[in-house]
Design a protein around this nucleic acid. Structure first.
Lengths: 338, 338
DNA sequence: GCGTTTTACGTAAACGTTTACGTAAATCCC
DNA sequence: GGGATTTACGTAAACGTTTACGTAAAACGC
């Protein structure tokens, strides 16, 4: 088994306190003793026990990250950023796949509480009261990413969804489109659903274009299949539609797939703009023009923010709206009268 | 701060041993005492400290998972399966993004050793000697997923890449194609590179079709861009090619993108079959026919295998070749003479 | 009733580490 | 030279939990 600090102390003929001081770079030993101890460490293959250290220090150098769908394309990019920042800051990342289940989320939070993680990153879901209660009990910093909470004062890192949707819609308008539809999410989703729909609506109205309920189809999810099913519905409500804004890249690509099947040419007959700039946006046909959420950077930023809070480098984190851009590819063309 | 077992014992007027017995469901207390203690636990909001428990039990209920690219589409699906199996088995998952760097991998392994994880899942990369040395020092079970080691006797969960490539190629042959190319990986990659190329070659030869170096282009990576760049090269070497097998879905989709750009219709003029069955395979245009690696199931299986080894339910794991299928979509058509 | 067995506790030690504090020796400065 | 300060240790206690073992009381069976 792994040698302990006692084994090293015995081997080097010093006390365990001396070994500890040397291992942790604290003062209080001679160069000669240091060399002797280091030789013993190497000879025995000593690896400090982080568990014992965590018990004493009341700090585990570990953070927990909760995702509603760990294999989703959004999550995996955010995770990469978080993991990079955490690792650079000396922290390990326990990943939790909540599957959007409140019960499972509570279970994970309790587990992370038992494991005495130093902080939490909570991604892409609304914060429920029972989660917030556990956060308070745990007394560790929490950072939200790709979400926010209107009810609880928790720092977040996200894109301004209203603005993103507004600008995506304006982009279509500037391309000359006048009949523009939207494939939206849920109007019970305060994070990705409502603000994106409001931004769409506001852009139409600000540009003197009409907005009615016929301009939006709503969905419970944001997946490829949702987009694929929505296009025919939207065309029925808005037969003269020449452009559409989809509230996620996956839905945009689903709409493209449906367009192909309906014999509608993209972008010649129907321009499509998405939201996310997932890796697949450049891989679809035609390559998707989309609002770019810098997912990995958001992960990185939230990770750095949490590390900074844990380390006490700052007492309060300032929430961050990350910049977005419109990434132009080939799914949007100028409006041409038919 | 969190109340300790001492606080509960004092509140309930029992010893800490009694609280521990009750919390852990061991025998040795009356029903009356149990009720009293449970009330104290609830009143104080006691959450056991898993760190202290881990120190005593020499088991942390935590596993480490190493990926070369945590946000890759392959990795994220495997991770989901691993995390599910681990969670169900009572284990937490620390995720490590090695970025294919040997140095970083060693750093992570040392970190996991310090944190005394109960087991390791190592994904999608070759096992180097220095990694194996650390595995041995750690004295915990290791399971490989989506990879294997010819040099070290470590249990693995993977698909038979040779067979998968063989059958993908035979599928094209059965569709009547006679001039078939391959966009391959690296012939220094013993995991995904060499076997897939060998399976391709064997299928051609077994069916009396010619195989030369002109039938394969090689790449260092397996990405969309690799596939996009490879198609023109392959067409130059094999101008009469009517079908191609790509060693990954991303490369297949890259080849499709290049075909669109070159004005080559898929599948009418060029049939394409991929390898992986990533989520994007159904989202591209046309939807990709591909060899299906059951990534999530592989993650699940490897996670279950590791949990079983940790728990001592089995002494030795039996390596598993997971079944694959050809998922037919719309990127392959019957050969038709031009 | 008495010896044996079982039940329901509590005590003490352990796990591997960190660190406050005491002490002896060396060094510095007047 | 002597007092004050600094250096280089070691000891003991702590962290929060688990559990082996001892002991007293209760239960059982002859």
């Amino acid at each position: 088994m792994n040698p302990t600090i006692k084994d090293v102390a015995k081997h080097a003929n010093v006390s365990i306190a001396t070994v500890s001081r040397i291992v942790n770079g604290l003062p209080g030993y001679s160069e000669e003793t240091k060399k002797k101890v280091q030789q013993s460490i190497e000879a025995l293959g000593y690896q400090p026990n982080a568990i014992a250290r965590g018990l004493i220090n009341k700090r585990t150098q570990t953070i927990g990250v909760l995702f509603p769908d760990v294999s989703g394309m959004l999550s995996s990019e955010v995770l990469e950023g978080v993991e990079n920042a955490a690792h650079d800051g000396g922290f390990s990342v326990i990943v939790c796949n909540t599957t959007s289940s409140g019960k499972r989320t509570v279970k994970y939070l309790r587990l992370l509480q038992e494991k005495r993680v130093d902080g939490i990153i909570f991604a892409s879901e609304d914060v429920k009261e029972e989660y917030y209660k556990i956060f308070e009990e745990m007394k560790v910093p929490v950072v939200l990413v790709s979400t926010a909470s209107s009810k609880y004062d928790l720092p977040f890192v996200r894109v301004n969804d209203f603005d993103g949707a507004f600008q995506a819609t304006e982009y279509l308008i500037r391309k000359g489109h006048k009949v523009i539809g939207m494939i939206g999410g849920s109007d019970e989703d305060p994070i990705a659903g409502v603000p994106r729909m409001q931004g769409f609506q506001k852009a139409l109205e600000s540009n003197g274009l009409s907005f009615t309920n016929n301009h939006i189809t709503k969905n419970e999810g944001y997946r490829f299949q949702n987009g694929k099913e929505s296009l025919p519905l939207l065309l029925k409500k808005l037969p003269d539609m020449t452009a559409l804004f989809a509230a996620s890249d996956e839905m945009a690509i689903g709409a493209m797939s449906a367009a192909h099947q309906l014999g509608i040419r993209v972008p010649e007959e129907l321009s499509i703009i998405g939201y996310d700039n997932l890796k697949i946006a450049e891989m679809c046909y035609p390559p998707l023009t989309t609002v770019s959420q810098p997912l990995k950077d958001m992960g990185q930023t939230s990770g750095e923010m949490l590390v900074s809070l844990i380390k006490g480098e700052q007492q309060e984190a300032k929430s961050r709206y990350m910049p977005f851009t419109i990434v132009e590819r080939q799914s949007v063309s100028e409006f041409r009268d038919k």
